[in-house]
Nucleic acid binder design. Sequence first.
DNA 1: GTGCATCAAATGCACAAGCATTAAATGTCC
DNA 2: GGACATTTAATGCTTGTGCATTTGATGCAC
Lengths: 125, 125
Amino acid sequence: MSGTEEHELVEKWRTLLTSYNGIACDLDRELQDQHGLGLSEFEALDRLIESGQDKLRMHELAADMYLSQSAFSRTVARLERAGLVGRAMCMDDRRALFVSPTDAGRARHAEARDTHRKVLAHHLD
Amino acid sequence: MSGTEEHELVEKWRTLLTSYNGIACDLDRELQDQHGLGLSEFEALDRLIESGQDKLRMHELAADMYLSQSAFSRTVARLERAGLVGRAMCMDDRRALFVSPTDAGRARHAEARDTHRKVLAHHLD
DNA sequence: GTGCATCAAATGCACAAGCATTAAATGTCC
DNA sequence: GGACATTTAATGCTTGTGCATTTGATGCAC
């Protein structure tokens, strides 16, 4: 690998690093301040609701998220504690859990969604 | 904003989110396991050494980093504790501190650099 | 059925991050 | 020169994260 190629690679990475951190930081702050949701909480709720399903297994919901299994588990626990999702046992496989949004969860998501999109639009124009 | 535009925006963001987290996670793990450096530590050391200067003010080094001021301060503190950088008072402005790489710091950086570039090349091909 | 690997989710733990505050030095305006 | 705002860096505190482990349930080989 040439020095130039290497440098381009690093530039690319630093751009990613900086842009990600800027957006994530902003998003997290806005969502937290205006709706009491952390970024991961919003992402989980967003994916859950936009799946169209009224319930998903933890495992399924976790699948396309970026979090470790433990972080995800705690994220859903926080959402549950806040009354935004419910968890129910799965009778087919008693290891699994179903997660589903509550009415409050849908409402909160609808509000937060605007903030989310606005911040994204601002950064990714 | 139309629904399609919105969806594209979200797609773009999720791509960024996923790709950033994958790379950052990998980088951090490799750097930590093979060289005992966290990602932020490496980034700080890398920027310090590649600046070409033999010393930089905290403030200057922090300038193009993605960390909060407090996180950056602690990152440099860890580097110092590990003997990879030194801190010296700045006589012009006694609030400021100079940071400079030690020999050990340069050596560690030279090793870790390969790992860093390799992981980047693997993800950003 | 028994033993053993595998899978789902939760938890103990250590640690890095951000926010708010603090401490000291410098700058500014009168 | 004195009072007050500003800047530089560090620190107390809380919280989210990953890793490793744990607890239970399922599947499979025999």
